[in-house]
Write a protein that binds this DNA or RNA. Structure first.
Lengths: 348, 348
DNA sequence: CTGAAAGCGCTTACAG
DNA sequence: CTGAAAGCGCTTACAG
C-alpha cells in the first residue's frame, strides 16, 4: 500500500501531501514522541525544542489526525450528542449551543437523533461508542437512569431533562413544573377561572411536569379542578387545533387556554380563529417554550421561555468539566414568563 | 457471555471487554485477513469459513471499529455534512433526510454548520477532512465553484443550491426562479397588479433567483415594474415586519405581497395585522418554502413548497452513488404552489 | 528531558 | 482461496 501521497489530504485546499507527525519531527530535529508530547502538553519539554517544533508545525501546516489519535490514545476529541430531533426549532437551538461550546474546547460534536424512541436511542449510543467518542451528551434521553449510570462507567455522560446523581455523570434539569405553575398563576391573576389545558404525551417527562404545574397552581389558588378542561395533545400543532374542536364540540366553557408547548398553542389559536373566537378578547392563550415563531404569531404569543440554546451551552460546558476530571456545578436558568399579546384580563 | 448476543444493548451496557477482529479470527479458526475480507465483501471466501466467521461474530457480538478502519483503509464510513444552520426548520428537515438515507447505506453523518460564512465553511470542511470522512455534502455552500471542484478531486462531493458539472461531484438545484415565477403569476391571475416583493439578501443565490422570477413574471404579463414595490429583507421575520412599515410609511400602494421566504411573509402578516389590514381581504400574502409554521399561521399561508426533506434524501443518495463509483442522476422535484388562505381575488 | 519501540484495530498488497 | 506482514498516524509506557 503506497499511500504516502495521501489522497485524502489537507483542508479545503485540494491535492496536497498530508503532513504527519513524523515529518514535523524530522523538520524540527526531534522525535515524534517529543512532538506528540508538546502537542498534548503531556510532559515538560525544553524551550528550544518546543520552539523548533512549533516552527515546523507552522511551516508545514501540520494538523493532527484525530482518527489516528483516537486509535492510539483513546481520545478522539469528539463528543457524541444524541438529540431527539434534528428538525426541531427547540433542539436545533440546543445543538447550536453545543457546537459553539465544544468548539471552544477543541472538540467536535457528533450529532445523531433518537426520535424519542428508546431502541433508536440505544442504536445511536452504540454508533457513538463504536466511533470512540470521548463522551456523550443526551438531550432528554429515553434511556432509564440505570442505563445512563452504567454508560457513565465507561465515559463521561451529561443528560438533560432529569436530575440524576452518579459518578462521571452530570444532569441538567429545567423547572418545567415551576414554569407551568407560573403561567397558570398568571392567567389566574388576570381573573380567569375556566382555564383549559392542552397536555403533551405522558411519556414526555416535561409534559407530565407541566400538567402538574397547571394542576397545582389551580389548587393553590383554590380553583376547583375540572378534568374536562384537560385535553390530551401530542406537542404538534394539529393536536392543538383538534383540542379546540373537542372543547367547543363538547360545549366546555373556558376563558383561557394553556398549551403545554407553543406548537399546540399555535394550533389552538388557528382553531379559535376558524371559529371566529378572538384572542385575547374572548380567550387568552399561553404557550410554553417561547419559540421564535410565537414571537411573530397573530397575536404574538405569551409563553414560558425555555432557554434551549443556553441548555446546549451548559451541557457542553458540563461535558468539558467532566472530560477535565472536574465536577460540573452548572445550573439551568429559572423559567421566565414572556408576556406578549395573546393574554388579557378575563371579561367573561 | 450470552449477554453479548444483543450488540445494541451491549453497546450501551457498560464495562465490557471490547472484542476485536483478532478475537473473531481466533474463535473462527481463520486469520484476521479473512475476517476482514468477509466483512468487506472484498474477496470470495469458502462458504465454510464464511459461516464460521459469521457465527463467531454473532456469538462474540463483534462490532468493527470505524476508527481503526478509517486509519487502515481510508474509509471511515462517515460522510461530512456542512449545513448553514443547525437551528433552522428548513435545513433541519434536510438533515433528517440525510440521516435516514445515509443510515440505509451504513454511513454516519457528521453534521457541522457553516453559518453562511465562507471562512467558517472552510474551517468546517477542514475539520471534516481531518476526520477522514469518505465524502462531503454541502447544503448551499458558500465556497465557490472552483473550490468545490478542487475538493472533489480528493473525495466525493455533493452540493445543493447550484448546478455544477465536475468529476466526482454531484449538484442538486431547486428551481427557485420557477417557483417565484409561479407564485407571482398566481397573484396576477387573481387580478393583482400592485404586487410588493420582499427580497432576501443578494448573497443568497436563491434570493436572487426568486426576485428574478418575480420580475419576469410581471414582465411576461405586461405589468410595469415599480421598483418602489421591491423592499429588501434578510429572510428573518423581523425584516418582513419592517418592510410593511416601509411600504405603509412611504404610502406605496399594493394589494398583494410576495415574500421571498415564509419567515418574512409571517413577519409581514404581523405588520399588516398591527395596522389592522386584513389578510387576504385587503392584501394577499404569499411566501416561499412552505414551512410547517405557515400551515398554522393566521390565516394559513399560501406558499411555494420547497422539498427540503427530499432534498436531503436526494443529496445522500447522490453521495451513495458517488461513493459507489456511479454517476448520480437525481433531480430535484419541481416547485409546487400550495394555496391556502392568505391569498384572494383582488378587490382594489 | 527524550528517543526507540510497541501497540491501538483494522486493511491490503504480497506471496503462496 | 488464504495467511503473514507491513503499515495507517498517533500515543505512551519503558528505558535511559
Amino acid at each position: 500500500m503506497t499511500r504516502l501521497a495521501n489522497p485524502a489530504a489537507s483542508a479545503s485546499a485540494g491535492t496536497e501531501p498530508v503532513v504527519t507527525i513524523a515529518m514535523v519531527a524530522r523538520a524540527a530535529g526531534v522525535s515524534a514522541s517529543t512532538v506528540s508530547r508538546i502537542l498534548n502538553g503531556t510532559a515538560v519539554v525544553s524551550q528550544a525544542k518546543a520552539d523548533a517544533v512549533q516552527r515546523a508545525i507552522a511551516s508545514l501546516g501540520y494538523v493532527p489526525n484525530p482518527v489516528a489519535r483516537g486509535l492510539a490514545g483513546g481520545r478522539t476529541l469528539s463528543v457524541g450528542v444524541v438529540t431527539q430531533a434534528l428538525d426541531s426549532p427547540f433542539y436545533g437551538a440546543a445543538l447550536r449551543g453545543i457546537e459553539i461550546e465544544l468548539q471552544a474546547i477543541g472538540h467536535t460534536p457528533l450529532f445523531i437523533s433518537g426520535q424519542w424512541n428508546e431502541a433508536e436511542e440505544q442504536r445511536s449510543v452504540a454508533v457513538l461508542r463504536a466511533r470512540r467518542v470521548d463522551g456523550i451528551i443526551l438531550l432528554d434521553a429515553r434511556l432509564d437512569d440505570e442505563q445512563l449510570v452504567r454508560l457513565a462507567r465507561d465515559l463521561p455522560v451529561v443528560v438533560t431533562g432529569r436530575s440524576l446523581q452518579a459518578p462521571n455523570l452530570a444532569s441538567l434539569r429545567f423547572d418545567n413544573f415551576g414554569g407551568a405553575f407560573e403561567a397558570t398563576e398568571y392567567l389566574l391573576r388576570l381573573g380567569h377561572r375556566r382555564i383549559a389545558f392542552i397536555s403533551g404525551a405522558d411519556d414526555h417527562q416535561d409534559a407530565v411536569e407541566r400538567r402538574r404545574g397547571y394542576r397545582e397552581a389551580l389548587q393553590a389558588h383554590g380553583v376547583a379542578l375540572d378534568d374536562r378542561l384537560i385535553v390530551p395533545g401530542d406537542y404538534r400543532e394539529i393536536s392543538g387545533a383538534r383540542a379546540i374542536e373537542h372543547l367547543l364540540g363538547q360545549g366546555i366553557a373556558f376563558s383561557a387556554l394553556f398549551a403545554a408547548n407553543d406548537q399546540m398553542a399555535l394550533g389552538a389559536m388557528l382553531g379559535l380563529y376558524q371559529h371566529h373566537i378572538a384572542v385575547p378578547r374572548q380567550v387568552s392563550v399561553i404557550g410554553f417554550d417561547d419559540l421564535q415563531t410565537g414571537e411573530f404569531s397573530i397575536p404574538p404569543l405569551s409563553s414560558v421561555h425555555q432557554p434551549s440554546h443556553e441548555m446546549g451551552q451548559l451541557a457542553a460546558r458540563s461535558m468539558a468539566a467532566l472530560l477535565d476530571g472536574q465536577l460540573p456545578q452548572l445550573q439551568m436558568p429559572s423559567p421566565r414568563l414572556i408576556v406578549r399579546e395573546s393574554t388579557a384580563f378575563c371579561t367573561a
